[in-house]
Amino acid sequence: MDFDYDTLVAFSKSWGLLYLFAFFLAVVVYAFWPSNKNRFDRAKKSILDQDDKPWK
């Protein structure tokens, strides 16, 4: 089989789609994973602390 334009198109329309969709699902799962909720809540509030020194 020749490696030509059609090969690339077939690859991107199959594996490319699969890879992007799998990646999308992984991100959604990470963002909505229940045990991550506390971590995210803490992260978004902690930047509002008025501290001006590195932690030991």
């Binding site: 963002a31 992260a43 930047i47 509002l48």
Partner: peptide, 16 residues
């Protein structure tokens, strides 16, 4: 958020 002294509306949305 720092200037408004309010946390970002949705942290999950910022990740997505």
């Amino acid at each position: 958020p720092v200037r408004a002294q309010r946390p970002i509306f949705s942290y999950r949305l910022s990740i997505l």
